[in-house]
Simulated assay, not measured.
Amino acid sequence: MPAPPLVTLHLWGVSGRGIGRAIAHMATDRPRLRRIPGLRFAKLLGTGSGRTFTVRDADPRRWGLLAVWDDDVAADAGDRGRPVAGWRAFADEEWSARLRPLTSRGLWSRREPFGRPRPARWAGPVAAVTRARLVPRRAARFWAAVPPVSADLHRSPGLRMALGIGEAPLGLQGTFSVWESAAALNSFAYDRAPHAAVVERTAREGWYAEELFARLAVLSTVGTLGGADPLA
């Protein structure tokens, strides 16, 4: 059975003067990433608050790279590679995490980026990644349903950080969140009424053309986000 992949997430904060350079990297880094040995999957991401998943959520001063590697050796080489070094050259802040998939279902760009891991117990912090491609004619219903769930998310016990992630301003969006334990994440996912209601509507009304839900063990983190370490 193949070894489980290693997942990394880098988040960079840039100044107002660095926004144009960040946008340029979003275009030029894609072919560079494809040439890195041991890289299975990668997405350059914009970020936002995730409170409405519309353009007004976007944070032009924070950008990210999610990558899936064959192993730690490949991830170490990627961390020293040109795309990451290019962001570090002008970023004011960086936070990165190393993650291991625990469960994953669904597709991202018609691929299973985290493979099909066997469900496993993990005693430490847990990250959740969601990603969806909206059915255009149903997008308005999705956007109307998001604010109550987002407000409840940010009040949930055990949440350490949460932000919206997306490959485009509209239609392709998701979330990345970190929880102090799997139990805290389970409580939000299954016990909180706003989230449960949206999950039911999603299935019934068919909002998504493609969707992915994954849980990952947080192996380590480095740096700060908004001036602080979310897991400190």
Rank of each mutant, 00 (worst) to 15 (best):
A128E: 15
R80D: 12
S156K: 04
R121K: 07
W108H: 07
R21L: 09
P113M: 00
L163V: 02
A182K: 12
G174M: 07
R51S: 12
A97W: 13
A42H: 07
R116S: 11
E112P: 06
G48M: 04
S181T: 11
A123S: 14
L39V: 13
I23T: 09
E167I: 00
R30N: 07
R215N: 03
L185T: 08
L33Y: 00
L134S: 06
A132E: 14
R17I: 02
W69H: 09
E180A: 08
P148W: 06
G46R: 08
R62P: 05
P83C: 05
R51E: 10
I19V: 15
V218L: 15
A196F: 02
L212I: 01
A74L: 12
V135N: 04
R80P: 00
A140W: 15
F41P: 03
A197I: 01
A145P: 11
A144Y: 02
T202S: 15
G171C: 04
L153M: 11
A217E: 03
E94K: 05
L219R: 04
A139D: 11
H195G: 11
D79R: 08
L159Q: 03
E94V: 04
A127G: 08
S104T: 05
M26I: 08
T175N: 13
R201K: 14
M26N: 03
V84R: 13
L102Y: 07
V135G: 03
R192Y: 10
G48K: 09
S15A: 10
D79P: 01
G86R: 14
L134A: 12
R30C: 01
A58Y: 06
A127Y: 01
Y190Q: 08
E180V: 01
I36W: 00
L33G: 02
R111T: 14
G226P: 14
R137I: 07
L231G: 09
A228K: 02
W122K: 01
A196P: 06
A232R: 09
R62W: 06
E211Y: 02
P4D: 08
A184F: 04
A97H: 11
L219I: 13
R88I: 03
L219Y: 00
D92V: 01
G158M: 11
S96L: 12
P113C: 00
A232W: 04
R204T: 11
G164M: 12
I23H: 08
E200L: 11
V55F: 13
G206E: 06
F114V: 03
F41T: 04
A145K: 11
R160E: 13
V7N: 03
L219H: 01
A27W: 14
T52V: 14
A132Q: 15
F114A: 06
S104I: 03
W143D: 04
S177P: 12
L102C: 02
V222K: 02
V146E: 11
T103E: 13
E112H: 14
R201D: 10
R56T: 15
P147Q: 09
A74D: 10
R155W: 05
L172V: 05
E180K: 05
V129N: 07
A123V: 11
